[in-house]
Design a protein around this nucleic acid. Sequence first.
DNA 1: AGACTAATTATAACGATTATAAAGTAAGAA
DNA 2: TTCTTACTTTATAATCGTTATAATTAGTCT
Lengths: 148, 148
Amino acid sequence: MGCMTMSSAKINAAIDNLKQAGVRITPQRHAILEHLIQSMSHPTADEIYKALEGKFPNMSVATVYNNLRVFKEAGLVKELTYGDSSSRFDCVTTDHYHIICDSCGKIVDFHYPGLDEVESLAESVTGFDVGRHRMEIYGVCPDCKRKH
Amino acid sequence: MGCMTMSSAKINAAIDNLKQAGVRITPQRHAILEHLIQSMSHPTADEIYKALEGKFPNMSVATVYNNLRVFKEAGLVKELTYGDSSSRFDCVTTDHYHIICDSCGKIVDFHYPGLDEVESLAESVTGFDVGRHRMEIYGVCPDCKRKH
DNA sequence: AGACTAATTATAACGATTATAAAGTAAGAA
DNA sequence: TTCTTACTTTATAATCGTTATAATTAGTCT
């Protein structure tokens, strides 16, 4: 089973999901979704826009933003907001955290068993109803370490 | 020992810190620092700007941004970047996390014993040299719960 | 006081994102 | 099929937070 096949399956699942939510699958939407699923990175809206301008020379940035919002609302995509200027977008598959390189900006997925106890402690201490949490870890990636 | 006294002590400590780093204490810097320390919230640059325009009618927004950067570089202030449009600024006292109300945006400090094991697991799994991490918890605050 | 450096101000520029309006495209009913 | 309607894309302008620039002001040092 090659990579292509796995991506295709994911894309088809995502498209079925959208269709059931009553969202039309336009060529632009298909391409944005495909790019998000196939690229292992966590691209910005502008990176998606530039990656697809070969295939869609007339596509507007607004289309990218609009459809990322559509995908977010359908629960297919998460928006990642770090300190830097622009948001990154990540296909929702399984829950995971991110570790980010301070030197080159690379983002790597990383799994960690649930921090439920943090949430429950927060609930009891603050009186909030806790819904979710986010965590990022920062450091220097192996590639950047080597370059020193 | 009143609140005023504690705030004053913190401000004096911060000012000593800056002086030792060779930073001049201008009236604007004093006021921005004072506002950051005394306000229990985590204000945006614009909120600070507006809060001080009574005292400093001619102060420029650039002054607020410049000095927040100076304070950050001195290690006195942390910049908090959440999903929303503008950064918030937090006086560094002791390490803590934040819990944020999804409904009204209120930010409450909350302590939790170190998640060192997350950092070390991340190191061994990804090969990064880990330096730090951030975590935020999201939910609905008691005030907003009551209003339903 | 005079000279040098740093800080503030006013303003313009920038970049990411969103809003608007016009034109295009698909889907369903007659 | 054709009409109608709603949705989508496009091009463009607007918005907003933040940063850069240049001129002015204020401190500091001798």
